[in-house]
Amino acid sequence: MNKHSLFPERGPAFWWTGFTALIAAGTIFILFVSLVIESVPVFKSQGLSFLWGADWFAGEAYGALPMIFGSLMVTGLAVVMVLPFALGSAILTSEFLNGRLRLVVKAAMELLAGVPGIIYGLMGIAVLTVWVRDVFGLIDGNTLFTAGLLLAVMILPTVMTLSEDALRSVPGEFRDTALSLGLTRMEMTLKVVVPQALPGLAGAVFLGLGRAMGETIAVMLVIGGIDRIPQPWFNLFAPGQSIPSKIGREAAEALGFDVQWSALIALGLVLFVMVMTLTSAGNLLLRRAR
């Protein structure tokens, strides 16, 4: 083993790509460190009770639990609602549609994936809240469920189109072999293609999950905006608050000032850690499953 084994070639390409990779990784690192530093004051004044306090009133108390709960709830809901539709349409597009039609569907989905949150938010406030209220016979349509549903619609194109890519990248020989062994097309898809594409599918879901968890404006407009855990907690048809929505509502007022600002940054830190944990836990589970 010589000393160059880790980086066998050190030409200009190595240095350039190394530099860009360092910038990319460094950005995440700096972001994390500054989140930690800026959130120190709130942990100093509230202790760890910041994390499980259920009461948030600017200037008096800062408890993040309702926001953490709300974020997990709407994101979980969105993923559960999106999975069957995203996977179903991905399988159809990848395995059953011919080339031309497939391109049309893909293009439409990619177009949809680029629509910014505010558009969904406006549709949500104008249509979805009223629709949810009337269909479910609620007194008001600004609920955790509405936010989850809106997020599901928002992440559908992302999850669908990335899932389709993952399915598509399974080599054709696998399909040919499966079919020649006498499997039906459906069996081939479910028993051969999907398992092969599992890491890619999981990646698609995690990317969608990340977007759902971080979505601010669309959620802010339909979630109700109240920092409260519903009674009972599984009551999805009650208003609530998510972390980004809370930050969106209070940030301009607290910008760079006081414990309130620190509390909002700490919320951001919690969100950061949540997304990181979920993603790495997902990857870990996946590696173990294989």
């Binding site: 293009a107 990619e110 177009l111 994936a113 680029g114 629509v115 910014p116 505010i118 558009i119």
Partner: peptide
């Protein structure tokens, strides 16, 4: 590319 283009257009609209 189409995705990015559309994003700009719609962002403008928004």
């Amino acid at each position: 590319m189409p995705a990015r283009f559309s994003r700009k257009v719609i962002l403008g609209l928004a």
